[in-house]
């Protein structure tokens, strides 16, 4: 027998965001209150600093695409593409996906190589709440590049447990 859906929601949602989400859910997309949209980046700064280990991170070369408005935080479509020749000597080694407002900031690390042909990965991720997601690409020459995308997550209102 299926569990009621409410128990399936990430439980770390702050009371504040639940209330904000409930109000927002009753509004139409255009009426979304802009001020309530983005909070601080939670654990993202620490997670990114850990990966960078002192190296400079340049914005650019990374195209991260997520829906501006996610209908449900359980499944958010992600596409990340990095500008790279993808040759034996010049390729993308790793792409880190980071979401600081999730209970665990690191969502996934994708490892690529010259045989990947193209530095593009698609997946589906969980977002606990509205936030900015960062994709950090580590190149074969050791340089780091980043792209970000902000997502409004329409929270489940916990009304239908069917």
């Amino acid at each position: 027998m299926p569990q009621p859906s409410c128990t399936r929601i990430l439980p770390t949602l702050s009371r504040r965001s639940v209330v904000a989400g409930a109000t927002a859910a009753a509004l139409t997309r255009s009426a979304w209150p802009a001020a309530a949209a983005f909070e601080d980046d939670g654990n993202a700064t620490a997670a990114i600093a850990h990966i960078a280990a002192g190296r400079e991170i340049k914005p650019g070369r990374v195209k991260l695409v997520l829906p501006e408005l996610a209908e449900n935080g359980n499944v958010v479509a992600l596409s990340v593409e990095v500008e790279s020749a993808m040759t034996a000597t010049d390729f993308v080694k790793t792409i880190h996906i980071i979401a600081g407002q999730n209970p665990l900031a690191i969502i996934a690390r994708y490892h690529l190589g010259p045989r990947s042909g193209r530095a593009r990965v698609q997946s589906t991720i969980r977002l606990a709440t509205t936030q900015t997601v960062t994709a950090l690409a580590e190149m074969s020459d050791g340089t780091l590049w980043s792209g970000t995308m902000s997502v409004l997550v329409t929270l489940s209102a916990c009304l239908d447990g069917g």
């Binding site: 359980n74 499944v75 958010v76 996906i97 979401a99 999730n102 209970p103 665990l104 690191i106 969502i107 996934a108 690390r109 994708y110 490892h111 690529l112 190589g113 045989r115 990947s116 990965v121 997946s123 589906t124 991720i125 969980r126 977002l127």
Partner: peptide, 11 residues
């Protein structure tokens, strides 16, 4: 050709 380390934030 492809590998991923995945955490609880993957659907």
């Amino acid at each position: 050709i492809f590998a991923a380390d995945t955490f609880a934030g993957v659907s």
